[in-house]
Amino acid sequence: MPASTAPDPGEVPDSDLVKRCQAGDTRAFDVLVNRYRGRIYAMTYHMIQNETEAWDLAQEAFIKAWRALPRFKLDSSFYTWLYRIAHNVTYDYLRKKKIQGDGEFDDSRTEHKVAAGAEAVPRGDDSPDTQMKNAELGDRIREAIAQLSPDHRQVIVLREVEGMQYEEIAATIPCSLGTVMSRLFYARKKLQELLKDTYENAT
């Protein structure tokens, strides 16, 4: 078959790839992994704050998704469905490890071993001085998030990283809307407290 007739994998809709996966096509699944691995890894990284564990959990999420694909009826977007699997994998892991943000630093979790080439801070055209300040702020924010409880970290990631509406957060966790609002409020208060010095020094 001439190469020009083969559709660019990037143009194939998720639903088509899902159907091919359900027929056992692992290459189609590879395309989906390529498409979403960056977003899934970002979520696991923000939740876990450890590159190696986040990498493993992201991979575990994709494996679980592959196993569950025969039962996926395309009643939501593939990414929404995948994200929930990844979220559950990560949250279960956090709970099992009983990571609690009770105000004490856990050096093993706040020591960021980011691989060469990995981008933890968005690119920008800021001056070197501004870039350094942004990088410092980023480090402080990640340290603060690492001290949150899994429940609080979860709502912050769902809201601030994924930009989910309250109803989506409630459906993903799952919990009531009231619980979403309470957790968001207290998570933000906790972050404010943890970042108090940073903000006071900046003003």
């Binding site: 977003r39 590159e51 992201a58 981008e119 933890a120 601030e160």
Partner: peptide, 25 residues
């Protein structure tokens, strides 16, 4: 705080050793 969180927590990050990530799956 919300603005800073969004600026410093990217929704997408490059996966270290991406090819190896895929092949392991």
């Amino acid at each position: 705080l919300s603005t800073d969180l969004r600026a410093n927590l990217p929704a997408e990050m490059p996966v270290p050793f991406g090819d190896f990530f895929n092949s392991q799956i």
